[in-house]
Design a binder for these strands. Sequence first.
DNA 1: AGCGCTATTGACCGAATCGGTCAATAGCGT
DNA 2: ACGCTATTGACCGATTCGGTCAATAGCGCT
Lengths: 199, 199
Amino acid sequence: MNTDNFSRLPDEKRRAVLCAGFACFAKDGYKKTAVSEIAERAGVSKPLLFHYFESKRGMYTCLFEFAIREITERMRAGTEDFFESIAIATDIKMETMRAFPGMDDFMFSLIRSREPEAAELQKRANAAQYKAAADLLFQKVDRSRFKDGIDIDTALSLVSWVSEGYLRADADKERETVLTEINRYMGIVKTALYKEEYL
Amino acid sequence: MNTDNFSRLPDEKRRAVLCAGFACFAKDGYKKTAVSEIAERAGVSKPLLFHYFESKRGMYTCLFEFAIREITERMRAGTEDFFESIAIATDIKMETMRAFPGMDDFMFSLIRSREPEAAELQKRANAAQYKAAADLLFQKVDRSRFKDGIDIDTALSLVSWVSEGYLRADADKERETVLTEINRYMGIVKTALYKEEYL
DNA sequence: AGCGCTATTGACCGAATCGGTCAATAGCGT
DNA sequence: ACGCTATTGACCGATTCGGTCAATAGCGCT
């Protein structure tokens, strides 16, 4: 009936519905996502979705609330080493992606979206996900380890582009492969950002 | 009426139609793109599109043919320095993006697409765009300049992720800004990939 | 067994949108 | 005045949309 009903779903089915919604909304945006598509992807019928969510819009915001809650709960502090903090961030992201595939894409697409439906949520998403993440994860970072001319924003941009590019290049990779390969690329990038004494 | 009519369009309107099609198909894929959406974005009426293209499918393949032709025409050879070749590639990409915004996204989305409509085009796109580009641009590259453990594929991945990440971060940047900023990031990456004697 | 409550769905609704057409108009060279 | 092309508002049948409903399936309680 209403939003609260959603939490009563059995775990496995709830996860399926969540992930289906995340994936579809992330892929096609709000308007171009059909409820029946989410239902099919989740392996349930369309009326069932309307039994747990009051409407398509309600489903959208409900997924958002869930994602915000999940992300902030998983967030934890970083260390004084930038790349250790990056590793922590990557690990959090991997955990999240494994638990709820598509959730990260959903939040990302929301921030980028120009759909009016997303406008109100963008600020909260941005604040909750990236600002909070950056603050918590990189607060302790010892910036004196960077080469001259490298500030933390530059470093963060470079590193995130590399890791995102790597993950985007092939979505069907094993967790182990991702971790070792990302480490390899981070090692390369590290030589570009850190003073030699900290390598 | 048929595909050939398309070339008779006045330049400005042709460009508008092309870019609108590129942007829409890239954003939503073949199935979820409405012809009326392309028409609206291009600032023309829907019947006009069906006057120049025989069908929606015809428009899709026509855009593809145009993009392939455009890309291969703009392609030119690189140098023995990897980063000079990268600069050439970036410049080609910038030229293309300025001439036909969305075209690059269109080709990229096509390669990534899992829609059956795209299946036949993917191989040609892949071959025409990336293989040919890599062959021409990086054939002359002197690989001995790389640090030990860095091969050209690794270097190419890193560099392309960084530049794509930068471009993706904000689509509304001036050409000058992009070139200088990309150069800055490439300078940083260069220290990670090149032996010191070649910096 | 019987009752009550929830989970679940096939079938269906009116409304909107889809790809595509057509007849009519506007414009332009001759 | 003619012919030809460019251009579009209005429209078509078909499909898909978000959402509903009545009916069924399943499970806990007595």
